[in-house]
Amino acid sequence: MLKELVKEEFTQDIAKGAVLVDFYSSTCSPCKMLAFILKDIEKTLGDQVTIIKVNFEENPDLIEEHKVEGYPTLVMFKDGEELSRKSGLQQKPVIIKMIEEAL
């Protein structure tokens, strides 16, 4: 599943299972290309991982809480614990590996 952040549900969303959070900015080109890759990944792994997109400008509290410094930043959670993190546009196989390590 790939969805935009619903603030009230975030803590609950990341608490269980494999959740990949994409901290992005709507004005950032690499973020747009990452979104393109994530859509592709969702087609094949969407039933095993939840992908949540968090807008950088609209969610300063979450950005601070998770110490995100730039965008795009991908943070992989498993049962609420951060497993891995990558900054910048990433190769599709690298993202798939992040997800598979959390399954």
């Binding site: 004005t27 080109s29 690499p30 290309m33 990452l34 393109f36 890759i37 546009l89 990433q90 190769q91």
Partner: peptide
Amino acid sequence: EKLAPGGQMINTN
């Protein structure tokens, strides 16, 4: 393509 379509265009605002 190893990364994503666009090349250096991706990093151009």
